[in-house]
Amino acid sequence: MSAAIEVVDLAVSYGDVRAVDGVNLEVAEGEFVGVLGPNGAGKTTLLELVEGLRRPDAGTVRVLGEPVWPRNPRLLPRIGVQLQASSFFERLTTREQIHTFASLYGVAPARGDEWLERVGLVDKADTRVEGLSGGQAQRLSIACALVHDPELVFLDEPTAALDPQARRNLWDLLAGINDSGRTVVLTTHYMDEAEVLCDRVAVMDAGRVLRMDTPAALVRGLDAPARITVAPGQLRLDEARGLPGVADAVESLDGVVLVTRDPARVVARLAAEDRLDGVRVQTATLEDVFLDLTGREYRA
């Protein structure tokens, strides 16, 4: 597998702020990669550097084997971009919008119509973009990014400011877009999103990539204890503390919470005593990884 993106020692500053501060990154072809970080972590700036919109102060970026700066017309038809804002032509309908983008890329309008169908906007085809909901606008903007069937797409916070339903709705769409071997780079500040969609995740804060790995490896690397919640009345606190494998137990509104590094053994014991009613097991998530890495409050 050759690299779709190679970033070496990349840095850029705005005045005193080091927006991107010595980033190294490699994305393989066909990979779905997430860049995860709080607002202001430098995700968008990193993406803009990789897309070739900004001149880096230092370092190099190669995309699909080509340099991205200065503006590289050979590269542009091979990549698709969705920017953070809804970048649409004012007062055009959904169909006119995607047809315009199709023309800019020299693609037949019919391809635009296919994409409208794929993102579920056929019944909104004659609605002006100003009349679309947040989720519909994002779907249209993704369709516009993909209308020319690029090898690599960049999606900058596609689910920001969407309600939970619209977010999950969009995940189904996003999960399918690298089926055909397309490489996808997505920024988000939602942990669950990165966990569900991405092959690998780069955790970013203050302009640096703190760690990059698969979500599972990141969570494993954290080595955090699991938390098992037992419904109220099932277990007394002193009983709970006496169970083998339990490191600590605390009482909460939901019942007794057991903290353990050996959840399998504890659950087996609870099962043997027939105390499994309402049991909930929570292992560490990407969010825990993130908080551990940044050492700060999560500022989504």
């Binding site: 919109l53 542009l76 038809p77 971009v81 953070q84 809804s86 970048s87 649409f88 004012e90 983008f101």
Partner: peptide
């Protein structure tokens, strides 16, 4: 308007001069 919605940026990344 185009600058605010980043449409200018978007066009910069499309293969049009």
């Amino acid at each position: 308007g185009w600058r605010q919605t980043k449409l200018l940026r978007r066009l910069q990344l499309a293969p049009v001069s």
